[in-house]
Simulated assay, not measured.
Amino acid sequence: MENSEMKSFGYVWILAIASFCYCYFISASIPKGLFRLLSLLPIIFLFTTLPLHLSAFHLCGLTAFLLVWLANFKLLLFSFGRGPLSPPQPLLHFICTASLPIKISQNPYPNSYKITSPYSKTGQKVAFLIKALALAALLKVYKYRQFLHPNVILALYCCHVYLAAELILALAAAPARAIGLELEPQFNEPYLATSLQDFWGRRWNLMVSSILRPTIYFPILTPTWEVTWFFVLQGVCTAAEVAAKKAAAGRWQLPPAVTRPLTVVFVAATGFWLFFPQLLRNHVDVKTIGEYSILLDFVKEKTLLPLSLYLQ
């Protein structure tokens, strides 16, 4: 990864943090409502344009996700005295909550939405390590992709999306945990989902759901609308599933041993059909995998070489 790209990344986030300080000191002193919204509109516009300064897929994608999507939604809620930024909190907590993919531990939803983990804290650390090793193994497998069936590659991409998202978001939330904030999990083992409602509502990317639930959900638009239709299909099928459950009224229910693989296979199969073709067509997958190699070389250069010189 070029030094110029890292400098741009640092520049973008210095501006973002300065903007959050403005929101904390200036906008918070303005009564909630239209005037606070007007005071935040320049920041929302700035956050929408900041990722354009980056070209690396991972840095640009992560920054767009954190600023354009999550932070802007949080600021819109903050304008009207709602959302995670509204309760009075110290500046450092405000910046962490605004800029990071976190949700401070609490349960504002009914018991049916309570987030529970199948692992203890020690088990969660072990699971994190296993997922990191699994992602590393995937990167090794990609070297032999010319020998693999296209559907096998798509299955690997499904695993890659989940593993990379969970690991990157967990690392991004590390600063908040370092200052003592107790956080809810960002993912809740989506491969254990027993239904689409369980997958999208209680297990996949939970802090996004918590922000979008009180606002408005806009699907991701693409030139061919394939990704949009992927999310539309998931919404329609989830609604049909909920209606079927109500109609059955508990008279019959498939065991988890059946519903879990059915749920994962449905999400993966529809992803093969609608989600991944857009990425493959634009060669985003090749660029993404290539950036991992660049990142590894960068880490080796900055850590292993100084270490070897020190040992000499």
Rank of each mutant, 00 (worst) to 15 (best):
F218L: 00
I14G: 09
C60A: 09
R260M: 13
Q124I: 08
T259S: 15
L221K: 13
A172W: 11
P84Y: 00
F94W: 04
Y24G: 10
G81S: 01
K246A: 09
L50I: 00
A173M: 01
S105P: 06
I168T: 14
P110D: 08
I168E: 07
A239D: 12
P90A: 07
A248W: 10
F80V: 04
V267D: 05
W204R: 01
W273M: 14
A240Y: 03
I44N: 11
R260W: 08
S39M: 02
K125P: 02
L233Y: 14
V12L: 11
F94C: 08
L309P: 10
H53F: 04
V284E: 07
F65H: 09
L148T: 02
V161E: 14
Y157H: 15
F218W: 02
L135C: 11
C158Q: 15
P87F: 01
E166C: 10
I216C: 00
Q146C: 05
T228F: 09
S308H: 01
V242P: 01
F20Y: 05
Y109A: 11
R177P: 05
A98Y: 00
I115T: 11
A164E: 14
R203I: 04
N3R: 15
I211Q: 06
I130S: 09
T122G: 10
D285L: 00
F65T: 06
L279I: 06
D297I: 03
H58N: 08
R202S: 04
I44Q: 03
E2T: 13
F47S: 00
N205D: 13
E291I: 03
V242E: 12
L135K: 12
P223W: 15
I115R: 01
P31F: 04
I95G: 09
Q312C: 06
F147A: 15
F128I: 05
H160C: 14
T259E: 13
I30D: 06
A127Q: 13
H93G: 08
N282W: 02
I294N: 10
A240E: 00
Y144V: 04
W204Q: 01
I115D: 01
P87C: 10
E241I: 12
K74G: 03
L279K: 03
P190N: 02
K114I: 11
A178E: 08
C237H: 14
P42C: 14
R251H: 07
Y24M: 07
V265D: 03
K74F: 04
W204F: 02
T228Q: 07
E189C: 03
R281Y: 02
R203Y: 04
L85N: 03
L77G: 08
D297R: 08
I289P: 00
S79P: 01
A249S: 14
S99K: 05
